[in-house]
Computed example of a mutant assay.
Amino acid sequence: MKTSHSVTILGRELSVKSSASATKVQAVEAFVNGRLQEIGAALKSGDAQLVLMLALLNTAEQYLDLRALQEAQAPLLEERLKVLLEKIDAA
């Protein structure tokens, strides 16, 4: 069930609906604000739209890297799990 949560991003209060817990929504809010502050501090321009676009691009790149890593490790994990299951079956 989705619940309304109030978050503040770049000083703007937003109402969002999420099935996540309030703690998780707060963690997401803190993460987003942290990334925006980090990128905003590195820019000479105070253009909020540019900060948002760069943060989105940066976060998307990190997500895709993590997803590729997970996909690359999946066969290794499956093989390790198979070995462990065989050991359990043999016991």
Rank of each mutant, 00 (worst) to 15 (best):
L43H: 05
S19F: 14
T23V: 15
L85Q: 07
I9L: 05
Q73M: 12
Q37M: 11
A72M: 10
T23S: 15
Q62W: 08
T8W: 03
L66I: 09
R80M: 13
N33S: 06
A41W: 02
G40E: 03
A41L: 07
P75E: 05
I9W: 00
K2F: 07
S45I: 00
A22F: 03
K2W: 03
A72G: 06
L64F: 15
E38W: 11
S45M: 00
G40N: 06
R12D: 05
A90G: 03
Q49L: 13
Q70R: 09
L50M: 09
L85D: 11
G34Y: 00
D65P: 00
F31N: 01
K44Q: 12
Q70M: 10
L76P: 02
A27Q: 15
K87G: 04
I9C: 02
N58C: 06
K24C: 04
D65G: 07
K2L: 11
Q37F: 03
I39S: 01
I9S: 00
Q37A: 13
Y63G: 00
E13I: 08
K87H: 13
L76M: 15
A48E: 05
G40A: 10
A91I: 13
S45N: 03
S21T: 10
S18T: 02
E71H: 12
S21C: 11
M1V: 14
G40C: 10
R80L: 12
M1T: 12
Q26F: 13
L57C: 12
I9F: 01
E79R: 15
H5L: 12
A48L: 07
I9V: 02
S6P: 01
L50H: 06
